[in-house]
Amino acid sequence: MRSLVDPIDHLQLHSLLQLSVAGVRLDITQAVLFMWIGCGVLVTMFLLASRQTAVVPRGMRVVLEVLLLFIREDIVKRTMGIHGIRYFPVIATLFFFILVCNWVGLVPLPRSYTATSNISVTAALALFVFVLVQVEGVRIKGIRGYLRGFIPEGVPSMLLPLMVPIEIISLVARPFSLAIRLFANMLAGHILILVFIGMATTGFWLLKAVPLLGAAVMSLFEIFVGLVQAYIFSMLTAIYLSEAVGES
């Protein structure tokens, strides 16, 4: 019996509205739509929470404050020290943006889609982090200090022709690792959920219970994975920024 759910098809982008600006296609796909839904939910939650003026927080503000303070204290300050606080908005927004994109795809809505399971989304974020780190490195250290970062301390000059390319490759590999880690984790989890659901649509009715249970368990696990991946992405961003500007 053929499965009624094709996981790969589900993960393909479908144009909901075709747009083109200066020859560049800016189609509104389900990835864009669910990214906007996630952003809308995120902004709404924060704006509602920030309206509270009571000293003692309540409701969603408690959760958001806990996460904000966690990012400020355990990611930004612990990695970059007190001077890294100027990067807090960027790192916090990366965390929450990735988190809502990871989670919004788990909500069973029509054409539900996890934006971070698309390599274009994660690559865009990784590229932004890469550019930010290089720009801040040059801005804080100057061009000479920035370039000196490619020469590891204590390395004999004979090894420099080998070490400098390795450092450059290591630097360039970072956005790839950032993008592929997030993309692969979210994609794998969602494919697994879709495979379980596909299995549940075929076969004898008694056998449907096991894959449905698997899909439910995987969905719960994906909530955790989504949180962990958002943390890893923002933590690595903080570490890269710390390395780029820390020794100034």
């Binding site: 560049v24 296609r25 800016l26 990214m35 908005p89 927004t93 929450f96 943006f97 274009s120 865009a124």
Partner: peptide, 20 residues
């Protein structure tokens, strides 16, 4: 890679960054 989606990602991210 879908350049359009990448651009939408940047736009969405910067808007969220600004507002938040």
């Amino acid at each position: 890679l879908d350049v359009g989606l990448m651009i939408w990602t940047w736009v969405s991210f910067f808007v969220v960054l600004y507002v938040l």
